[in-house]
Design a protein around this nucleic acid. Structure first.
Lengths: 124, 124
DNA sequence: CTGCATCCTGCGCGATACTG
DNA sequence: CAGTATCGCGCAGGATGCAG
């Protein structure tokens, strides 16, 4: 029986891996961890994301079954995004990534400083 | 005391998150999980990566202290890449990502099919 | 408020050729 | 084998303007 393998360039998991590892995906899913949020609220939490990219990313995540999109026909309009069970499941590995980045940032920074010092031998 | 926060666009963890979530990073670190590999070997395992991107990604990972690069002055040249302790630590969350993608690929595929069917109402 | 369409720019990346 | 250097294109993504 065949097993999906992202090391194969033609395997769909390759593309999926690219999507779920995307920084915006990590942050958006993380933001929705504690409950549904509106479009603008997500944009406010995920500092620096453009409206266009936010829209694109949200649509992709909805299409992939990670989020649900619920539009309320009120005035003004209100649209809520919420994690599906699949999305909630995904949020666990993503949260580990987030936490790893926070915890090891200083180690990485030290490594970079050392590397740069090594490869930039005191001026030119 | 200040806590690093990737939700802030100026926080270095933002960039770090982007790097470690990168598909090539996930695959390369995963490939090195079982021991050091040579440049060409990595390229062969990570199907579809160009030599240029492989070089760039490896250099970044070395700089960030995820990998070590060891060059042997033999003919022909031989360069081995190996996970550092930090890299081995990182490989755990990354492996979870990889496994998630493999396990849930079919669910995502189903969601996509449903979404596309819904949003492409039987021809035009 | 929540989008979508358009224009435009940067630069990521592949392809190719050359070195040690 | 393991890179570096260069060129050129495609497309992601920012900015703006409009619609429901």
């Amino acid at each position: 029986m065949w097993q999906p393998d992202p090391y194969d360039r033609n395997c769909p998991t390759r593309q999926l891996l690219d999507r779920i590892g995307d920084q915006w995906t990590v942050l958006i899913v993380g933001a929705l961890k504690d409950g549904p949020l509106r479009f603008t609220e997500i944009g406010r939490r995920v500092d620096g994301i453009s409206q266009k990219v936010l829209t694109q990313t949200l649509r992709s995540l909805v299409r992939d079954g990670i989020l649900t999109r619920t539009a309320y026909a009120t005035i003004p309009p209100k649209v809520e995004y919420e994690l599906t069970p699949l999305g909630r499941n995904l949020s666990e590995p993503l949260e580990m990534l987030d936490r790893w980045a926070r915890v090891h940032m200083s180690s990485v920074q030290d490594a970079r400083d050392a590397y740069d010092a090594e490869h930039t031998p005191a001026s030119a």
